[in-house]
Amino acid sequence: MRKSPLPSEITPQAIYLERRKILAQMGLGLAGALGAGAAPSALASTGQKLTGYQSTAYGHDEKLTTYDNITTYNNFYEFGTDKEDPASHAGSLKTRPWTLTFEGALKRPRQMGVDDLMRLFPLEERIYRMRCVEAWSMVIPWVGFPLQKLIQWAEPTAQAKYVEFVSLADPAQMPGLRRAVLDWPYTEGLRMDEAQHPLTLMAVGLYGEILPNQNGAPLRLVVPWKYGFKGIKSIVKIRFRDTMPVTSWMKANSAEYGFYSNVNPAVDHPRWSQATERRIGGGLFEARRKTLPFNGYAEEVASLYNGMDLKKYF
């Protein structure tokens, strides 16, 4: 497994400084006065500390996106469509008690509280790149457990070919549901082998703390080689099925959002380029970086798609 970033991901300091100098000379002003780093934290983290999780080697060479940026720049349409909306409005989400329902192609249907699930599986920290379909990216230190373990525990039958995930859709807690921006509840899906891949994570924490509401508390999916919207938040139901689920974004626009939605610089979104991305926290004068196939996790996951035309199955 490749655990360090490709050299191409890191802008060498010298080139970076040179670029800033060029910009300054071009008279775009400001360049010299502006640092590229994030502003000092204005937002104190209020999360509850998670204890007893294992550190892993994933992504340790990456520069982490700040807690502020990860928790104030979110797509979570249940709380509004602006990036700042989830941070402003997700306070109304009640994450305890929280029950997950498992149904479909299982030996028997199950229900389980999220705290019990967190006790059932050892937690680990995984630093993953997150590439949004809107062509920006972050590096996020998640805490969670592999979905693989949850699936083993749930005991799906041989009929289970796909996993469907469903988010909470409670208008009393989620003001964004008043508008039919998407077909609620938010629904996502994975093929069984994708769901069981060791990289696929159920996250319950961030930066060593309980997951903030705006990031999908209490439990969310993280599939680092796919566009961010596949990482469904605040999950209440997991359904094992023999047919491919139709996700919310596929319903919204099937020409733009496919079931797989693997990060792929060679396949543009019909309306914008996916060849490059902007790393959040890079500041006003940092260049875009090249987007990597499967978001840089090709070595681990490309074999899942052997023989598939990824232009067709986007």
């Binding site: 502006l34 994030a38 720049y73 990036k83 920006w136 902007r278």
Partner: peptide, 18 residues
Amino acid sequence: ISWLAFHNTLGANPVERV
């Protein structure tokens, strides 16, 4: 917008913001 830029308070995605 210049004031925000000088104080580094353009948010998480300053380029998009501008």
